[in-house]
Amino acid sequence: MLAFILRRLGSAAIVLIFVGVLAFILFRYVGDPVNQMVGIDTSIADRDRLRESLGLNDSVIVQALRFLGHAAMFDFGVSYQFKRPVAELLIERMPATLELSLISALLSLVIGIPMGVASALGKDRWYAKLLQAVSLAGISLPTFLIGILFIYLFSVTLRWFPSFGRGDTVKLGTYWTTGLLTSSGLRALILPAMTLALFQMTLIMRLVRSEMLEVLRSDHIRFARARGLPARSINFRHALKNSLVPVITVAGLQLGSVIAFATITETVFQWPGMGLLFLQSVQNVDVPIMAAYLLFVAAMFVAINLVVDILYLAVDPRLKTTSKAH
């Protein structure tokens, strides 16, 4: 077990180094950072001097290694645009993204599970088919359009919720700011969380449906039926409970992609999270932010995968030989 974890940690480190180097090598194709740092009429000599002082004239490999060397000590450099340490910026923006992602994941479970159950129990009935079709709404339009439609409906027309930002936040401890404790913060959260949740909801609903269908066919449910247990008890006490384990697992695994996905939602709602920071940094060719954000996402994916693998291993030792449970 320990050996397995160590091996996985080793490969996780390799993955991170790879992401770092690869990202850095490719970033030079995204654009020229210097153009975004000076006015259009800044002289060529000044531009060259800036380029030199940023180390952009060194070979890409040298730049990448230098970045990795610093990153290993959690020093991600200073943002070209904001002139602030990238680590600080990311930590500042992290609570916004995590709150948005967690709330929307929760929302998608709360809505997705009942819909999945209903469409599984009513399989082949018209309403189940309809539910399945309706659930596709979440993935049938691009997120940015859904977000803008929400804003149009709920902010401009009905004036129920704000169209942008995070509302008032409260500071918890040194690093964490939360919008969950103020009414304006909660109101501001609703539209972006719904936009983000729609996509996940579709996934959860379909997952619950197919897991339920599987379980309902399994022997122990048939046995329960044969024993004459009431349908309600069978469906919810036994079938749903058994279906939920994989659903929760996948939802957990999904959290990584939700956070990565949040970029578009954050942009539309000007949600001050890491995704917005990342997209802005792409537009501004702010290489330190891009690189650090990618490393962060990579670390998160790796961590979640690792945790899941370890959990599976703890549950089922037979899996020791195959490394991947997913």
């Binding site: 992401v19 490719l26 792409v282 990618l294």
Partner: peptide, 29 residues
């Protein structure tokens, strides 16, 4: 197997937007 699955892990960390930007940049270059 392990190598390919690690590559898959790496790929998952790159959002499609970034892949598009990078491909676009490399192609133009």
């Amino acid at each position: 197997d392990a190598l390919i699955m690690r590559i898959a892990d790496i790929q998952l960390t790159f959002p499609a937007i970034l892949i598009a930007l990078l491909v676009d940049g490399v192609v133009h270059a």
